[in-house]
Measured scan of single mutants.
Amino acid sequence: NQASVVANQLIPINTALTLVMMRSEVVTPVGIPAEDIPRLVGMQVNRAVPLGTTLMPDMVKGYA
């Protein structure tokens, strides 16, 4: 099963992502693939992302 990117903490709206904010986990539904974590660093979320939430492509500005 493919691992997805999951929020390791509450990520406030418009926050630029850092490695410490994300972890990989096998979840359903599948979100952004864990191998894209390096690409996500520095990108901003367009909404608040609660701890444990799977990051979906539409949550990250410029990802989709």
Rank of each mutant, 00 (worst) to 15 (best):
T53D: 11
I32T: 03
A48D: 15
R23M: 02
R47G: 05
N8K: 15
M43V: 06
I32Q: 01
N1W: 11
V41M: 09
V27T: 09
Y63I: 05
M21C: 02
P12Y: 08
L10F: 09
I37G: 13
M22S: 01
D58G: 09
L55H: 01
V20T: 12
N8I: 15
T18F: 09
L40V: 12
G62Q: 15
A7T: 07
V20F: 13
P29G: 12
E35M: 06
P38M: 07
Q44L: 07
T53V: 08
L17M: 08
R23E: 02
V27E: 07
S4H: 02
A34C: 13
A3S: 10
Q2G: 15
T53I: 13
I11T: 02
G31D: 01
L51C: 15
A16R: 04
P50G: 12
V6G: 02
D58K: 04
A16D: 02
E35K: 03
N14T: 06
R23W: 07
S4Q: 05
R23I: 06
E25T: 05
V30H: 09
M59Y: 12
E35C: 15
V5A: 06
R23F: 04
G52Q: 11
D36P: 01
S4T: 10
L10N: 04
L40K: 00
P29N: 12
T53A: 10
V6E: 03
S4D: 00
P33V: 15
T28Q: 07
R47A: 11
R39K: 10
V26F: 04
V45N: 02
P29R: 02
A34L: 13
A3W: 04
E25Y: 08
Q2V: 11
L51G: 09
L51K: 07
N1R: 01
V5L: 05
N46S: 13
S4I: 02
M56S: 08
P57I: 06
E35N: 10
I13F: 10
A48I: 12
G62T: 08
V45D: 00
Q2D: 15
L40D: 00
P12N: 05
V6Y: 14
E25I: 03
V41C: 03
V26W: 10
A64D: 06
V6N: 02
V20G: 10
Q44D: 06
T18E: 02
Y63N: 06
T15F: 07
N1H: 06
D58R: 04
R47I: 06
A34H: 11
I37R: 07
S4G: 15
N1Y: 14
Y63S: 03
L17A: 01
P50Y: 13
N8F: 15
S24N: 13
V41S: 10
R39L: 08
V60T: 02
G62S: 09
M56L: 13
G62W: 09
I37H: 04
S24G: 11
M43G: 06
T18L: 05
S24Q: 14
N1P: 15
G42V: 02
T15N: 05
A64T: 14
T54W: 02
R23A: 04
V49G: 01
L19D: 02
P38Y: 10
V20M: 15
L19W: 07
I37A: 15
G31W: 02
P38D: 11
I13N: 08
S4L: 01
A3P: 05
A3L: 10
Q9I: 15
E25N: 09
M56Y: 08
E35R: 03
A16G: 07
T54K: 06
A34G: 11
S24L: 12
M43K: 06
N14Y: 08
R39C: 03
Q44Y: 13
L51N: 04
L55I: 11
L51W: 14
N14S: 10
G42P: 01
R39I: 05
T28N: 07
V27C: 03
G52A: 15
I37C: 03
I32L: 06
V6S: 03
V30N: 08
